[in-house]
């Protein structure tokens, strides 16, 4: 038990950046827009969050800054994909390159500094529950926000009018358009907000997880999040499950390394990536066997109002 609790606690902490990124991407994809630029957006979110927190001394201002930067990047992506009807895969790759390059270029003067970051707050009562308390309720406020976000998304997608409109736009933009739903506007809004939430994932890394900025610090988590969206079959609750699973692999791998195992570090570091492939493979094979697959039907396809099908 003494060994398991720290690993599970670390799993939740290191799963949270991936969870934010996955939730943001789910929101974007529900509207039918594919954003593969998560890695770049997370990095710029991590940089801008850290840079604002470092210069103002307020971690929360950093969180806000990261969200706004994410929204701006989402706006760029939406402009290319929705208005200019560009190829969404390539636009996402461009975003990854731009974000990776820009964050290391801008952040080179911040390497090596640390910030106090977000405070650890134990939730009263819940934090005292054995096992569950330390694992889930002795973290920071931004991590608790991600729990709320999961619940909110579940409710929003299934039980609200705007949530239904969003799904209609992602599944059948032509029908949505005929019903008077503004397809382009909705895609813009959710691509922006989605990218903002993805950037929060990056900000969580620099503000709460490592409390410092480092070049390429997300190390592929953005891409893992893209894979997790599929694993989660676009369901926010499953996204949380998947994110903590990956957090667990990472925590386990780090713990093995610090425990001085004889397995070489590079081999251990392959684990999350191999696991991503394994998870995708598993879900794709099962898909053929009739599980409900929640992919938005028009994902990745631009909508051109004047064009006939």
């Amino acid at each position: 038990m003494e060994i398991i609790i720290p690993i599970l606690t670390a799993a939740v902490r290191s799963g949270t950046p991936i969870l934010y990124a996955t939730l943001g991407e789910i929101l974007t994809e529900k509207g039918g827009v594919l954003n593969l630029g998560l890695e770049g957006i997370m990095l710029l979110g991590a940089y801008s969050g850290f840079s604002v927190a470092y210069s103002t001394g307020s971690a929360w201002l950093g969180v806000v800054a990261a969200f706004l930067v994410g929204c701006l990047l989402g706006l760029l992506h939406a402009f290319i994909c929705v208005s200019l009807k560009g190829n969404q895969v390539v636009a996402g790759l461009a975003m990854t390159m731009f974000g990776t390059g820009a964050s290391s270029l801008l952040g080179r003067s911040l390497v090596g500094f640390t910030i106090p970051g977000l405070d650890r707050i134990s939730v009263p009562l819940l934090g005292d529950i054995p096992l569950l308390g330390p694992v889930f309720f002795q973290h920071d406020a931004m991590l608790y926000c991600s729990y709320a976000l999961v619940l909110f998304f579940c409710w929003y997608f299934s039980s609200t009018r705007p949530g239904l409109n969003l799904r209609a736009v992602g599944d059948n933009p032509r029908a949505a358009d005929a019903m008077g739903i503004p397809v382009a506007k909705i895609r813009y809004i959710y691509t922006m907000v989605g990218a903002g939430i993805v950037a929060l994932g990056g900000a969580y890394m620099s503000l709460a997880y490592t409390k410092m900025w480092g070049e390429l610090m997300t190390a592929g988590r953005g891409w893992i999040a893209v894979a997790l969206v599929i694993f989660a079959i676009w369901n926010p609750a499953r996204a949380a499950l998947g994110a903590y699973l990956f957090g667990g692999v990472e925590a386990f791998q780090l713990r093995l390394q610090t425990a001085g195992t004889t397995i070489p570090a590079p081999i251990l570091m392959m684990l999350p990536y191999l696991m991503t492939v394994a998870v995708l493979l598993f879900i794709s094979i099962r898909k053929g066997k009739g599980i409900v697959f929640g992919a938005p039907a028009s994902l990745g396809l631009p909508f051109f109002r004047e064009e006939r099908d």
């Binding site: 770049g40 760029l76 290319i80 200019l84 560009g86 190829n87 390539v90 636009a91 790759l93 461009a94 975003m95 990854t96 390159m97 731009f98 974000g99 990776t100 390059g101 820009a102 964050s103 290391s104 270029l105 070049e215």
Partner: peptide, 15 residues
């Protein structure tokens, strides 16, 4: 990384 910024921008504008 400044080259990467340029590469990203080129790709955006080509799109």
């Amino acid at each position: 990384s400044s080259v990467m910024v340029l590469q990203g921008l080129i790709l955006f504008f080509v799109l």
